[in-house]
Computed example of a mutant assay.
Amino acid sequence: MYIVALKVIFKEQIEKYRLHHQLRREMEIQTSLRHPNALRLYSWFHDDERIYMILEYAHRGELYRELRKTGHRTEKQAATYIASLAQALAYCHEKDVIHRDIKPENLLLDHEGRLKIAGFGWSVQSKSKRHTMCGTLDYLAPEMVENKAHDYVVDNWTLGILCYEFLYGVPPFEAESQTDTFRRTVKVDLSFPSTPQVFAEAKNLISRLLVKDSSKRLFLQKIMKLPWIIKNADPMDKCSKLDL
């Protein structure tokens, strides 16, 4: 027996919000990806009212749910997730795919605790710079906030945001209002709380990803060679239920 997931989309909603092009692009991109940390889209079909996407089944669901339940991760858990994400995003970037909406709600866990990138609705396949502001407030790179052209390194920025959130339980630039979040993002108003205690190597990784000048952000391929990743990440790419 082979278990899959069905994502159901109502055609009425696609018509109402004019999502035809975006949905087609999402399906084309996700169908083309073959990486252990990218959720597979196997196929799709439709009837008069709905479109059905046949997806790989991620038994444990959204990482967001587990983060909200238990707060921050241990350094071993965080390093394992960051290593998985770095490898998957590097693969996507090699295929000229920019995800543009990496966040805990779009990260799923399979039955072994292996992380899977999902939520390709804002993804684009392009070699050129893009201009559409898209994504989620706390995870937007400065160039998006300032309505400047952007490329694949917006995903590198988001990886830094997630590393911070995994270790401290909240995104680094979270604020009372959208305006304040934007202001802190553009200034890269980054600080590290005294608790929980986090090793300097992890803080260094975050600081090298959360750089306003996008050309100076740490390359994803270099992340796997960092001592913090080598020392803490599970080589089997898994976080068991007991770890959480």
Rank of each mutant, 00 (worst) to 15 (best):
E49A: 11
Q197C: 08
K203V: 06
E49M: 08
K203Q: 15
L19Y: 04
P36V: 12
R184P: 01
L55K: 00
K238V: 12
G71W: 06
S128I: 13
L218G: 00
Y52A: 05
M224I: 11
A233N: 03
P104A: 10
S215D: 06
T179D: 12
V8M: 07
K16G: 07
Y81C: 08
P142W: 00
Y64Q: 08
R130F: 02
F219H: 09
R65A: 13
E62S: 13
Y17Q: 09
I3T: 11
V153D: 12
W228Q: 02
Y17R: 15
I229A: 06
K216V: 05
R217L: 12
L85C: 09
K231Y: 10
K216W: 02
Q87W: 05
L19R: 13
F192R: 12
K76Y: 04
I102S: 00
Q178C: 09
Q13L: 13
N156H: 15
S194L: 13
S84K: 01
R73K: 12
S215E: 14
W228L: 02
S191A: 13
L137S: 04
L190R: 03
Q178W: 06
K238P: 04
I54Q: 05
E105M: 12
Y152V: 09
H99W: 08
M27Y: 00
Q30A: 08
F166Y: 15
H72G: 11
I117H: 03
V145A: 05
N156I: 04
S43E: 14
R68C: 15
H59C: 11
P172D: 08
H150N: 03
K241A: 14
L115E: 01
V145C: 07
F199D: 15
K103A: 04
R24V: 07
T179E: 14
D96R: 09
A233T: 08
I54G: 01
K16T: 14
P171N: 04
A118T: 14
T70F: 12
R68W: 10
K76C: 04
I9N: 07
S240C: 10
Y168T: 07
D180C: 05
H21T: 13
I161M: 03
Q30I: 04
L109N: 01
Y57R: 05
A79Q: 01
G121A: 03
L39D: 01
A202N: 06
H93R: 09
L220A: 03
T181Q: 07
E66T: 11
L33W: 02
K203E: 11
K129G: 06
K225M: 03
K95P: 02
L89S: 00
L242W: 10
T31Y: 04
S32Q: 13
D110L: 03
E174Q: 15
V8N: 06
M236F: 08
L63K: 07
T31Q: 14
L109I: 14
L107R: 05
F199C: 14
K116F: 08
K241N: 10
L107G: 00
V8R: 09
N37F: 10
M144G: 04
L244Q: 14
K231G: 05
R217E: 03
L6E: 13
T136S: 15
F199N: 07
T185F: 00
K238D: 05
K225S: 14
T74I: 14
S32P: 08
H46T: 03
L109Q: 06
S84N: 07
H21P: 03
C134Y: 07
N147W: 06
T132W: 01
